[in-house]
Design a protein around this nucleic acid. Structure first.
Lengths: 220, 220, 220, 220
DNA sequence: AATGAATGAGCTTTCATTCAT
DNA sequence: AATGAATGAAAGCTCATTCAT
């Protein structure tokens, strides 16, 4: 028998709200102070709840840590997918996804730290997240390969490439992170990323195969 | 009757040995368990010393943490430089350095974790290390650019590229790390890395976006 | 069914009881072993509580140290005031206060050590306490001076005298403290104190050495 | 067979010098930082000796603490005796001794702290010191009593009085100690002290408040 | 005898977790 | 279910004392 609907929240609704509040508080605290400083006390204080309440929703501190990245990672993927949606061709998709990663960081400034530290503080979650990301990416690249949009590399190479491209985003985010945690990606970084993908770095006439000796002499 | 020097260790020798033992123990413990779990107790136990002894050599736990990366990072750079020595041309140098990074990890399996976690547990050292690495790398790339070996990108692009390439190594190491911490880089990863550098990924005949044909002409 | 209040202790009541237990334990431990030996471990053990509990009530060891003297000092002053209440004239007030100090020590044997050591272990509290005591005493003496009950000495002299009289109590307590910490003031000490106040020590007719009578009359 | 005398110090001379250096260093350190902060490390550093050397001369930290007050106390007594030497009559002797205590503090600024804290950190020494001081003082007063210079009080009263007078000095020193530890006794304090001894505080004719004459007559 | 490093007990403090209300 | 105090294990660090040189 439902209560009057608007006025009353059902027990389970309330319960979910509290869980959500704890989750949100944890994300913020970890984003601001890192996992190491994210004590239960801090988290519950931020959520305006008693310390003990925490353990009604999570069995341990580690448990909420392990939940952070999967949930936020899914949001990130949704955001990227949505932004890349409608892009035509490999290159455009790449660029849009790339940009989307950084626009996501703008909306969720605390995500970067959660992501980075997770490797050490929530390793299981981190591995899972990486798997999610990379398998999606891999699919995308395999399609592009099938479509002839990218060079016909082996599956193993694709996996390595996927890791490198994900790596690029992560480190660039770190590189362009400002002291307050926000990230401002310069346009040159996009150019550099796209150039690497499109042609690599080596000059067309360069290369290891028989080259002008004068050039190859010694760059020290 | 004077001691003959060889037979007996002088006090300072012994002192240095102990310092070294502590350092080594710390490196191993951090490599295996991470900074967070690297308590003084664990470190001294591994070095077979009393807890108090630690404080005869380091003024604090943080101090030894801050020393880990600089010392090991210097070893890494030395190793890479030595391995890359004699290489001819940008491509060869790149490949050799790339491989050297992973051969170093083989010799020092605990380095990777020390390096990665340092960002959060020894941030000053990490920044310094990154500066060292990236500025060396940047110099190298600028020379290659001057020599016409790589595309004539802007300084800013070079910086971004350097970060991406360093990132690639780090993430690949993570990717191919086995549960016991050792890293086994498959040959395909090298191929993929070198391919990315040399031609990028996009197929010559290219994507759907019409591009300047002269540019798109020749990868491989 | 509401709890009837009497039977059950409310949370805040219990809380206050624990705080009080910690305070009491600290007072006893400091009284018996001194501040230096009053470790948190000893204090909580005496209060039959876990070490961690201490930090739910005090932010640091120093904090409880700083609270000891103010609280007990106020009790002492209340006791003395109450005992001296109703006394008529300077002399009676003096004597009653004097005796009250020692009767307080009987009731609170650990107070003496807390008071004495506070100078070094809780200097702020000690200064405050001394200020409280001496300013009250000074007011009292100035009134007696205004009433002509005591010699018309300068304000500065009064301050010095106040210190001397407080000193007398402190040292006499020390002198008559028994190994178990309890203090038993012999009646002669009271006599001596009152005699000193009333007439000083010098014989009216002066010493055996013939002195200039004019000098002996009235110093200054 | 003595060595050339001037050039060489005998073994025992050297030994004594080191002991003296340690003692002096301890006195200074305790005087400046208090017993609690007077670590062996600090003391030996100040004496320019190795930590281990300390234990060739003293069996424990406590031992040197227990030696501080007896030795310096003897110096103080010698100083006072010398200053009071030649004084004629109880009053002059008292005043000179009183002043001598403070002039001693000027010469040995660290003595006051050593004396005060000794009660808690070197209680045996403190008791001994007090015994030394007070027994000398007691003899002095008994002589004055025999000579009729002071009121014919009982032996027990004399003991109490002695404590009160010693107390007066100690507290006045504290009262007039400046932040740097030096003591500057104002002349009023001397006046107050001598007035107390000579006539007490109570006005001869009593207060202006009409009091029962029988009460005011003669205490006890 | 002098040295100074090694030792380890002990300190204060933090905090994840438990539990009585 | 919510609370918030109680718990106690563990941390980093200090320092009196010991001991090999």
């Amino acid at each position: 028998m439902k209560r009057t609907g608007v006025a009353r929240k059902s027990r389970v609704q309330k319960s979910e709200e509290i869980r959500e509040a704890l989750f949100q508080a944890a994300a913020e605290v970890v984003g601001e102070c890192g996992y190491a400083e994210a004590s239960i006390s801090r988290i519950t204080q931020r959520a305006d709840l008693a310390q003990g309440t925490f353990y009604n929703y999570f069995t341990s501190r580690q448990e909420i840590f392990d939940e952070l990245l999967p949930v936020l990672g899914a949001k990130m993927m949704a955001h990227i997918r949505q932004q890349a949606n409608g892009a035509v061709g490999y290159r455009e998709k790449e660029e849009r996804s790339f940009r989307a990663f950084f626009s996501f960081l703008k909306r969720m400034p605390y995500f970067l730290r959660i992501l980075n530290e997770a490797e050490f503080f929530a390793p299981v979650a981190h591995r899972q997240h990486f798997h999610n990301i990379s398998s999606g990416y891999t699919r995308f690249m395999k399609k592009a390969r099938a479509a002839g949009e990218i060079t016909a590399v082996s599956d193993e190479e694709i996996e390595a490439l996927v890791y490198m491209l994900i790596a690029a985003r992560g480190y660039l985010a770190l590189r362009y992170m400002k002291p307050d945690g926000s990230v401002e990606l310069p346009e040159e970084a996009v150019t550099a990323y796209m150039r690497l993908l499109s042609h690599g770095l080596v000059s067309p006439q360069g290369g290891d195969v028989p080259v002008d000796p004068s050039q190859e002499r010694e760059p020290r």
